[in-house]
């Protein structure tokens, strides 16, 4: 006896309607969009020039002229937060790209081949996971020189095993399905099947993991640039601004408050977005951390 269950067809419209009812998704989407807009606007306009030092305006408290106050060189904190957003987003986004670009094919390949290849790749994953990510990122940037590019590489490398694991787990669940068998019977190679049938089916998983790693990348970049290993001055970065703020906490606490809030809001937005997407596309999915 077979059991037939009608599953309502999910159309783009129905998913969109579901998305707008999901508070986490809407909040995350709006926040992420605002931060992105802020970064893009900073290319054409900022309230003040972030490269111009106005010593007579140094460490001014927030006011109408300077909403977030000024730093020890008289630079406008709001303008620096805006420009800093570019750096954070660029580093985290490219690092996610590296992780996906290398990790997903590796994971999909491991799932397609199975046995020895799979075992070897997973043990390699264990090896990378055994190194504390932050410590290794610090080593990489310290050894190859500080800067945004090396920060991207350092963060990107540790995204690779994460995506490999997610892609492998997702692909393993897809492989026993009937439509894969059909594709096999049609004579498709395992590479073809992976690209045409497996990848589209694990795209949601990867998207959700992508937003999580994006958020973690923002935090990691902030940590590295706080230690002086990220983007170099005069390019403003949120982590570097916090470093500059630390010794001036008594006279100018706003120097620490606003860049930190920028990090919190960005990461919060991305996490909410990820939660929302996971909820909408698969109510049963749980986030992996």
């Amino acid at each position: 006896m077979t059991l037939h269950i009608e599953i309502p067809e999910e159309t783009f419209g129905s998913i969109l309607a579901k998305a707008f009812r999901n508070t986490a998704f809407v909040a995350g989407f709006v926040i992420t969009l605002l931060i992105l807009a802020m970064a893009i606007i900073s290319y054409v306009w900022t309230p003040y020039d972030v490269t111009k030092l106005v010593i007579s305006d140094k460490t001014q408290a927030p006011s109408l002229a300077h909403w977030f106050g000024t730093d020890h060189f008289g630079r406008d904190i709001l303008s620096m937060v805006m420009v800093g957003a570019r750096n954070s987003i660029a580093v985290a986004l490219v690092a996610v790209g590296i992780g996906m670009g290398v990790g997903v094919p590796l994971g999909a390949f491991a799932a397609a081949r199975g046995s020895l290849v799979d075992e070897a790749l997973m043990r390699l994953n264990d090896l990378v996971f055994a190194f504390p990510a932050l410590l290794s990122a610090i080593m990489i940037t310290a050894i190859f020189g500080p800067g945004a590019v090396n920060a991207i590489i350092a963060i990107g490398i540790f995204n690779i095993p994460v995506f490999a694991r997610v892609a492998r787990a997702g692909a393993l669940a897809i492989w026993p399905r009937e439509f894969i068998l059909a594709a096999r019977a049609a004579g498709k190679s395992s590479t073809q099947i992976s690209i045409e049938h497996v990848l589209p089916n694990i795209a949601t998983l990867l998207l959700v993991q992508g937003t999580i790693q994006f958020a973690l990348g923002i935090l990691a970049e902030a940590g590295l640039s706080y230690l002086g290993l990220g983007a170099q001055p005069p390019m403003p970065s949120w982590g570097r601004m916090l470093f500059d703020a630390q010794t001036r906490m008594v006279v100018a606490p706003w120097m620490a408050i606003f860049p930190g809030m920028a990090i919190v809001v960005t990461v919060l937005g991305l996490n909410l977005l990820g939660d929302g997407i996971a909820d909408i596309l698969d109510p049963k999915s749980r986030r992996q951390r």
Partner: peptide
């Protein structure tokens, strides 16, 4: 979402 070193500050 809070970076621990900012929370520390």
């Amino acid at each position: 979402a809070v970076p621990n070193f900012w929370f520390a500050l």
